[in-house]
């Protein structure tokens, strides 16, 4: 019979205390849009459902100079309706607007989307491209994990049993560069991505000064494409170079075949989306 328990603390401290006591017996619920289906499909065994959706102190979007901090329970809708995100961190807004559907966006949280560690998580590529770090806390301890080091495999993360994501931070130096997010799904809403790409690009005197690219659904984890980035740095962008860079992308991605697409198609599309992102951003720059 049901051995699930439920608790909805009102403060972060309470959550951390409970996590310390319960460790892997606790399952953090933020929006609930992933956890409830997992419960239903018996993917999660009976546990303590630790509902953090009511913790106001974790719901914030802050910008201090060039430092951004977003609280873990900030919902995807919050991102969309945030003027400052729209105006100064549009890449995240683009991803949020293509996330699931309007109803799910009202509940799903940024922390939850990352903690779920799906290769198809829509907020992961833009945050990877932003070089984001995660504020991770346990009782009396706080540490930062770079997002690129956070994902270990499908639904596997670097989080310890007693830890939770409390916030996401990144610096906005990268935001002086335009960014874009492109998603290819099989329909226009409620689509689990076939491939996504997020990119920030800085061009100086026609050369790639800085570039950061990340992709979703092309590997067991949301993937930062360091090789492709390195390849392009300091080079003049032209069609031939882009074609060459696509080959780097093909080398770096490692998609699977599933019900939505074959590995070959995903691989091919990753090149296409990569190219499109580059084209879009260079057009915007010029």
């Amino acid at each position: 019979m049901s051995q699930f328990r439920y608790i909805s603390p009102k403060t972060k401290e309470e959550v951390l205390k409970i996590l310390e006591e319960e460790k892997s017996e606790a399952c953090i619920v933020a929006g609930g849009s992933n956890v409830l289906p997992y419960i239903r499909d018996k993917i999660i065994p009976p546990k303590l459902l630790l509902d953090i959706s009511g913790i106001e102190e974790l719901n914030y979007i802050k910008k201090n100079g060039s430092n951004w901090r977003i609280g873990a329970t900030t919902t995807i809708s919050d991102l969309i309706s945030s003027k400052i995100i729209r105006e100064e961190c549009n890449i995240l807004c683009q991803a949020a607007e293509q996330f699931a559907d309007p109803l799910v966006r009202n509940k799903a949280t940024i922390g939850g989307n990352l903690a779920d560690a799906s290769p198809a998580a829509d907020t992961a590529p833009p945050l990877l491209a932003l070089d984001a770090g995660l504020e991770v806390e346990s009782k009396g301890k706080k540490r930062e994990i770079f997002l690129k080091d956070f994902f270990l495999g499908p639904r596997k993360t670097a989080l310890q049993d007693d830890e939770m994501i409390t916030g996401i931070n990144f610096k906005s130096d990268s935001l002086n560069k335009p960014g874009c997010f492109i998603k290819l799904g099989l329909r226009q809403a409620m689509a689990i991505s076939v491939v996504t790409v997020a990119m920030v690009l800085e061009i100086e005197e026609n050369r790639v000064k800085d570039i950061r690219v990340a992709m979703g659904s092309v590997a067991p984890i949301p993937l930062r494409l360091f090789n492709a980035e390195e390849f392009l740095k300091n080079k003049h962008l032209n069609d031939d170079l882009i074609e060459e860079a696509k080959n780097k992308v093909y080398e770096e991605v490692n998609p699977i075949s599933d019900i939505r697409a074959s590995a070959e198609y995903r691989c091919y599309i990753s090149g296409i989306l990569f190219k499109r992102a580059l084209e879009k951003l260079t057009n915007q720059t010029s």
Binding site: R187, Q188, A189, M190, I259, R260
Partner: peptide
């Protein structure tokens, strides 16, 4: 354009509305 109940050796690989997709209003 999008609908198919995929069966592999008699096993349905599209058992829910996230795999068996039908048009949304946005489509």
């Amino acid at each position: 354009l999008m609908e198919e109940v995929v069966m592999e050796k008699g096993v349905t690989l599209t058992p829910s509305f996230s795999e068996y997709i039908i048009p949304t209003a946005a489509d």
